[in-house]
Design a protein around this nucleic acid. Structure first.
Length: 270
DNA sequence: CCCTCGCCCTGCTGGC
DNA sequence: TGCCAGCAGGGCGAGG
């Protein structure tokens, strides 16, 4: 499922087809994902030129020369299809560029979203207004985690999924980062030692950066006619590996936290 | 404010 | 082979 590295990889891949390009045509096949598409989406995008691409947390940003930014979220099953051979069932939005490239936003489970936001007011836009620091940015420090975790009794894992604390972490990479930092996912956040938080920040950065690097190589394979953008295989240490051996000699376990699966190793995560 | 829980959606998997 | 329950989960709102 698309998490931050997949969104980053998708944005970089799309940039090659969109940056500097005029949007010649926009087709909407089904006008709602999680929410209805914004009114006037087709009209506002058609004829606009893409000035730059970006990402905030798990949202992709397509900036245009009309001071409007198309903001997309891939939800659980969203992906951009590059030069699809034919339009398929879940290709909800299709963009054709001035030089004839076709890009289709496909989302079977429709947990994704598409919005149009004034570029100047992006940081104040609803979902962005209360977001915490980017996990790959300089604002995410052990000190930031120490301050936001102070006095909190909730387990650390669901807190790391809270976008107000760190923006862009999902279930997979939280499991992986906690494993790498050797922290129990059910540890009370306010009681984690500073030394462990000092391990957690670089662990978060490393799992994300490694996945982006892996996706970067996959994109070259995918960015071909009928190719797909947004997924790549990763070698996770704990996620989806219940019962598998951990490198420490333990066995990967699984339990539910806040209604979703947490994978971890009881032997090396303390 | 803090924390937990349930809902949204649909394709896929596993059990019978 | 066919059917169906269960699972995946980010974001958001409700409720304690």
């Amino acid at each position: 499922m698309p998490e931050l590295p997949e969104v980053e990889t998708t944005v970089r891949g799309l940039a090659r087809y969109l940056e500097g390009e005029r949007i010649a045509r926009v087709a909407v096949n089904r006008p709602d994902l999680r929410r209805p598409f914004p009114p006037g989406l087709v009209q506002e995008l058609t004829g606009a030129r893409v000035t730059a691409m970006g990402r905030r947390a798990k949202y992709g940003l397509i900036h245009t020369d009309r001071d409007r930014t198309m903001v997309f979220h891939l939800g659980m099953s969203g992906r951009w299809r590059i030069e699809p051979e034919r339009i398929e069932k879940h290709d909800h939005l299709v963009i054709e560029t001035g030089s004839g490239h076709v890009l289709a936003l496909n989302d079977a489970r429709r947990f994704g979203s598409v919005d149009l936001v004034d570029t100047g007011g992006l940081e104040q836009w609803g979902p962005f207004a209360t977001m915490g620091p980017e996990p790959l940015g300089e604002a995410l420090t052990p000190r930031h985690l120490q301050r936001t975790f102070a006095g909190r009794f909730a387990p650390v894992k669901p807190l790391l999924l809270d976008q107000r604390i760190v923006a862009g972490l999902g279930n997979i990479y939280v499991c992986e980062a906690l494993h790498r930092a050797r922290i129990r996912p059910d540890r009370e956040a306010g009681r984690i030692a500073p030394a462990a938080l000092a391990r957690l920040v670089p662990a978060i950065r490393a799992v994300l950066a490694e996945s982006i690097a892996a996706g970067g190589s996959t994109i070259r394979d995918y960015a071909q006619p009928s190719g797909e953008l947004g997924y790549f295989a990763s070698s996770w240490q704990v996620y989806g590996r219940e019962g598998d051996p951990c490198a420490c000699g333990g066995t990967v376990a699984r339990f539910a936290q806040g209604g979703r699966s947490t994978f971890w190793c009881p032997k090396c995560q303390k």
